[in-house]
Design a protein around this nucleic acid. Structure first.
Lengths: 256, 256
DNA sequence: ATTGTACATATTGTAGACATAAATGCCATG
DNA sequence: CATGGCATTTATGTCTACAATATGTACAAT
């Protein structure tokens, strides 16, 4: 070493100047490969609602440590993609029947508004994007279930993107994911998520700048999706039990 | 001990039966006192956008360890209440000007829909709640800034609650918080967040079941809020710099 | 046969220590 | 007087080990 300082000049640092963060790239946890992986697995329905997400197994699968897994899981929990239970672990989120209905209702509100804005703002680039997507969706292999699921989701995301509101886009993304969980929980086996003809119709109406028509078509489309799910009998029994126990628990907390 | 078992009967466990979680209380990270504390501090504008949230300081302030703080911060980051920057720490989120506008636009869409649903579903209990809130808001101490802020936020939350859609309610909560960050970032000093007469008007229209009128009033109210904020000159310069540096960074990454 | 108890195991939660990166202050140099 | 390098300090990121909790199995008791 060149020189040791014999003593500290200013032992107490002068009030650390709080420089606010200006020119930096904020970390985006959504780019985390673990988060991405779990999300795509869920939206492709390879992970079913209620499936256990063990930390060790995930760590081994993704080749990282438990810390990253924990961070990813807690992020997914705050987006209601997984449910965390103390000392038991993380599970793929399973919405209740009421929540499923609320999700569809929220989507009706938000996506009809998105369609409206998309029609208003439609420009050349937007038209091109929309046409490109519609072509891809028209001639994709319908037997490839995973591709179908991805494409149908992308259509709704694309409409939200064309609306030009990033906040609404984030919300739509989240609702899309929760929709696929709702469908996975309550679907009748074998039916597709979206009816195959709805997207071309909506797309064409947007391209034609038929605002009222497009809004109506989107509303109807989401309504149709909702009508494909049914509350499961077994679920109702469980919900009944849950309600009973919750009431008991509440009484216990209140009474003493 | 009573007896030691000489050997294991089944050394390999028979495929752990996956019991799905049914009757359990999922952890709600929102109940965490750290999360609560930071959120209320933000919505009361005691923490300003850009303020640094050091882990050690928070741990000391809340009397807990860094682990809990980290969890809370990462949760808040995924709700866009704080921004995390690698190796620098967490800061109270500061929305961009575009984001602020998008937030208000999203609120116009969602809260007008909420008002509409609230009018449809209004029952005795709802009327009572609404009246009770309006009275509290009418005769609160206008000099108590924190109480005012809480009350005005509660009105919007109450309307979302009356709409009877929990998903929409969560979204509204999140947008409320982000609104207060947007206002804190771009407000003209000294002006209140909400105009004082708007809430009684909207409440009266809901009580009168005047759906169209209530929707229009809510729309106008949010528009008015939005018109109180202005892009800051300094911010624009910074944004310009940010854009430049981001471009440079992207070029560097692309070029090698 | 079914229920209750105790131990074994697996998994999650937590704490502390260590590694690493950014920010600050000091000092030399132009 | 301003600027740039160097060392120190502070703060964050990560790992490892241990503790706490729940689950599963075997066995005893009714």
């Amino acid at each position: 070493m060149k020189r040791t300082r014999p003593f500290k000049r200013k032992p107490k640092r002068s009030e650390p100047k709080h420089r606010e963060p200006e020119v930096v790239d904020p970390r985006n946890i959504d780019d985390d490969p673990v988060v991405q992986g779990i999300l795509t697995a869920i939206s492709q329905k390879r992970l079913k609602p209620g499936a256990k997400l063990g930390e060790d197994k995930l760590a081994a699968a993704f080749g990282t440590t438990r810390i990253h897994i924990r961070q990813a899981l807690s992020h997914l929990a705050s987006r209601k993609a997984v449910m965390q239970i103390p000392n038991r672990g993380a599970f793929v989120y399973r919405p209740s029947w009421e929540e499923a209905q609320d999700i569809f209702a929220a989507r009706r509100i938000i996506e009809t508004a998105a369609v409206s804005a998309a029609v208003d703002r439609l420009d050349k680039a937007g038209k091109a994007e929309l046409k490109a997507h519609m072509e891809r969706e028209a001639r994709h292999d319908r037997n490839d279930r995973w591709a179908s699921l991805s494409l149908t989701a992308e259509f709704h995301i694309l409409v939200a993107k064309l609306a030009g509101n990033r906040v609404l886009l984030e919300i739509s993304r989240e609702l899309m994911l929760r929709t696929s969980l709702a469908i996975a929980t309550f679907e009748q086996p074998g039916e597709p998520d979206c009816s195959p003809d709805a997207h071309p119709d909506i797309g064409a109406l947007i391209l034609a700048r038929n605002k009222a028509g497009a809004i109506h078509a989107m509303h109807h489309h989401i309504e149709e999706m909702e009508q494909r799910i049914r509350p499961k009998k077994g679920e109702d029994e469980v919900d009944e039990l849950t309600a009973i126990f919750q009431e008991i628990g509440a009484r216990a907390r209140a009474g003493g």
